[in-house]
């Protein structure tokens, strides 16, 4: 849904999205990376299962919750991508606290 402006100085790195390797610009947030990947929806709500994606990008709306490096319900807009990061979409409520 979003693309890089050609006039940029970002380097690229590889992360894992739902166990698949993908390449995204370094220095951007996980939520931004999802939009860059055309993978907008970050989760399905625990209430009705409706799909949601990043909305405010500034940590206010809590729509972009994802499991990042094993820790569920993190605001993807507040976490910067790092090489090898494991990112997963969330379906429904998180598991019972097995997280790190």
């Amino acid at each position: 849904m979003f693309k890089q402006l050609s006039d940029n100085k970002a380097e690229m790195l590889t992360i894992e999205l739902d166990a698949e390797s993908v390449t995204v610009p370094a220095g951007i947030s996980v939520a931004a990376a999802m939009l860059y990947l055309d993978a907008a929806a970050t989760r399905q709500t625990p209430v009705s299962g409706s799909p949601r994606a990043a909305f405010c990008m500034m940590g206010v709306c809590f729509e972009c919750l994802m499991e990042i490096d094993g820790s569920p319900n993190r605001r993807a807009c507040q976490v910067v991508v790092t090489a090898g990061m494991r990112v997963r979409r969330q379906l429904g409520a998180r598991d019972n606290g097995q997280a790190s």
Binding site: P46, N73, G92, A93, R94, D95, N96, G97
Partner: peptide, 10 residues
């Protein structure tokens, strides 16, 4: 009282 985020049946 504390209320946590939702979790699968615990």
């Amino acid at each position: 009282l504390l209320i946590t985020e939702r979790v699968e049946n615990f």
